[in-house]
Amino acid sequence: MSVLDDDLIICRCEEITVGEIKKAIREGARDIAGIRRRTRAGMGLCQGRTCESLVLRILARELDEEAGRFHPNTARPPVLPVTFGVLAGEPDE
């Protein structure tokens, strides 16, 4: 894998860069949830569907650990984008 510039965006939804993720790791993030809490990476529309495996690879490389050590983000409903109208059980006008 090529060297990643710090200004490269990793989480497109929330526009979080490699540098911000590395900073979160320096500040003590040790898993994907830790990165998410500190940076919002994976909290946008796609809920980490695109960036989660990229974040995982940065974590594994920075901490020199196996990728399988890092659990995915905790899944919470809704796992897909839905409108408040649907959630409330009201017809969506």
């Binding site: 409903p77 796992v79 897909l80 839905v82 649907v86 959630l87 017809p91 969506d92 006008e93």
Partner: peptide
């Protein structure tokens, strides 16, 4: 019909008609 949640039971929570209609329902 998009299953956006699953709860013990199991119970599925589904949004129907998001793509095709303006009256999606749960």
């Amino acid at each position: 019909a998009a299953v956006y949640a699953i709860y013990p039971g199991p119970v599925l929570e589904i949004a129907r008609g998001i793509l095709a209609t303006r009256t999606a329902s749960k």
